[in-house]
Design a protein around this nucleic acid. Sequence first.
RNA 1: GGCGACGUGGCCAAGUGGUAAGGCAAAGCUCUGCAAAAGCUUGAUCACCGGUUCGAGUCCGGUCGUCGCCUCCA
Length: 459
Amino acid sequence: MVIQFFDTYTRTVRPFEPLHADEVGLYTCGPTVYDYAHIGNLRTYIFEDILRRTLAYNGYKVRHVMNITDVGHLTSDADTGEDKLEVGSRRTGRTAWDIAEEYTGAFKDDLARLNIVEPTIWCKATDHIAEQIETIRAIEANGFTYATSDGIYFDTSKLPDYGYLGRLDIEGLKAGSRVDTGEKRNPTDFALWKFSPAGSKRQMEWDSPWGIGFPGWHIECSAMAAKYLGSYFDIHCGGEDHITVHHPNEIAQSQACCNTRLANFWMHGYFLQLDETKMSKSSGEFLRLQTLIDRGYDPLAYRYFCLGAVYRAKLNFNWQSFDGAVTALNRLRQTAFEWGAPGDAVDEGYRTRFLEMINSDLNMPRALALVWELVRSDLPAPVRKATLLDFDRVFGLGLTEWQPAVQSIPDAILALVEERQRARAEKRWKDADALRDQITDAGFEIEDSPQGARVRAKS
RNA sequence: GGCGACGUGGCCAAGUGGUAAGGCAAAGCUCUGCAAAAGCUUGAUCACCGGUUCGAGUCCGGUCGUCGCCUCCA
């Protein structure tokens, strides 16, 4: 079946065809590890995971590369700010290397808790300094660089179609620029290599043909993507914020050194908004996945929440709608659990419709609606179960593993339950209701059924 | 100031020009000693105005509003 993805480069939905028959090359921009990820960041990684799982569901092998930016990402893209890792180091009194390691670990934990499949290859910027230097040399040899007092820069005016991905209005940028461009020749020029400040030693710095310093932020992606996937591969992903700066710069670098636009498809995840405002690390509420967990939420509820919207539109987060996702996921889990063991065969009709939906640019809301239709269908439970578990290869909600939590109910509560059962048997309704109130006040829920009373801790 | 996106029932959110998916919440009903849980049922003409069309949420123009990028950002 044809897979259609929206490609930011052409701004069209177009059929996806792998460049190589055997394997799809996928590069996803990873985190800068100077702080924890917030749930807005994680939305993008969930989108990329759905993309990867969709490719796999269609039978493709995927070679997935994700970078860890542990050096070079400045606090300002004007190339005048500080390295984020160095700032974090000063803030905490620990080394930049320690900080990078800690936040890398925290990031990987978050991915695991969201059931995000690990990349085939992780790559750290600091492990690939030589490759980055080589890439810069190639760009330099082709005449796209110039030096200033603080570094080696890419001259974007040498590329007639610089910024095409972002549909940048170069003249408009010049006119409306609010940033001092310093020694840069054009506002869109960017650093390939930055010199260590004279007289001070950075924690992270390397020798290079141009002097001691560190690589610019954009070069790592071009260099590492080319190393692991080749200079032209299938799909490159990132957040929507990369459409206008980071990705055009990656493309420029690849054009300058390899004469390719790096990737056949460019796909971008859109922001999570908090009460109609962007969630950011510098201002506003900073919700981490751990924050949700601390409030008693299952991290996979956040994954379900994200599946409720298409990746290519902003998604508004508030507690009312998030609680809705929590309830929906729990109902789905409980229902599926009660279906019992899956049968051998999935329902082909549902499977075909499912495939159509995920292959239409990852329309997960539609796919989820199909799940609820399946839940209400009159197919035999084993077929429904097998079909749902098959879909979950893409949803990644862990429905195969899920089972109701085994809860230990305190003996005191069990005694109250028993007493209530006696009262009910003797039709002492007032006593029974009083006992139920006692149990409820203690934080437990009671459900009467033909098989007897069930107790569980209130969620 | 420059550029761009969006505005669908209480909340979140799909939607290929042909008479509005789904989830949550709410209400009613069934079940229940009463509840809970579960099941069933019930709501929207798509910000506003004008235009194109046999027909527009879906295309064009305008108004209002919100948001994003141009500062760090997924």
